[in-house]
Design a binder for these strands. Sequence first.
DNA 1: CTCGATACCATTGACGCCCATGTTTACCCA
DNA 2: TGGGTAAACATGGGCGTCAATGGTATCGAG
Lengths: 156, 156
Amino acid sequence: MGLFLSTFVNKVDKKGRVSVPATFRATLAQQTFQGIIAYRSFTASCVEGCGMDFMERLSESAQDFAAFSPEQEDISALIFADARQLAWDPEGRIVLPEDIIAHAGIADLCAFVGKGQTFQIWEPEAYKAAEAEIRARALKNRPTLPLKKPASGDGK
Amino acid sequence: MGLFLSTFVNKVDKKGRVSVPATFRATLAQQTFQGIIAYRSFTASCVEGCGMDFMERLSESAQDFAAFSPEQEDISALIFADARQLAWDPEGRIVLPEDIIAHAGIADLCAFVGKGQTFQIWEPEAYKAAEAEIRARALKNRPTLPLKKPASGDGK
DNA sequence: CTCGATACCATTGACGCCCATGTTTACCCA
DNA sequence: TGGGTAAACATGGGCGTCAATGGTATCGAG
């Protein structure tokens, strides 16, 4: 399983194009849709990004809420209604739509931030600030992560 | 399962390259990604290192937090966003990125410190100091480790 | 016909690959 | 047991390739 790792800052040209990092493209290479899915984060001034398969996983998970339930309605509006399929061109670039750019406050630079199964797109300075805050908190709280056993039986 | 053991001090050349100890490479030899994953420790002035499979274990473990939860966000920012895939060249060397070098205070030498399932990269003098501190604390506290039974049936 | 979007082409700069060298360690044989 | 040899590892430098980026051409829609 491929992961989105590291942070890449790429330039946005005057046509709104930006290169998707090559390693991110490689992670999405075997998917049916050759591009990314992007939707505005509802918790921060950034854009959530993922591949189509993750979108389908989200959809499956949302089914756990009853149809027509308030949670279902909200999730649908926040994610699925807002999601855009951004195919990349032969050079691996996507065009960021207006409202996406506005929501993240992106100007001529944008940061692709790996989050494991997904990634985010930030205005670089805004991300730097957000990261500094998290690191300061981590120094105090010393967060831990209960580690699962290695995938058993997985021959990989 | 292979472990990262012992400590090796290698030279960093002017291109920022450093040889990954041969025994560490052997430990990672059968993995899909031929290289190491490195991210800045959020508690010490050193760099955490591991293989891709361990990173995937971390990702699996992080899934126990709900998507979009604050815990998920923090872990992602601290680990996945900061993690770098450093593939080694045919000679077994990796290139240490700028911010990694800066964070660990590495100049022309760096120490690979085995930690079992993972390892760390230190500036040698800094590690010497950190190790002395740990040993001093151990003399006082006498730490213990509840020992598990040998994994039964696991032929590996 | 004009405008916007997308595909095509060109440039450059970083990174990966190749070769060469020295030094240590391990192994073999006398 | 000691010396000699060979292999493996750490190191240094030069070159090619690919990714990121900027510009131009072409196609389609309004």
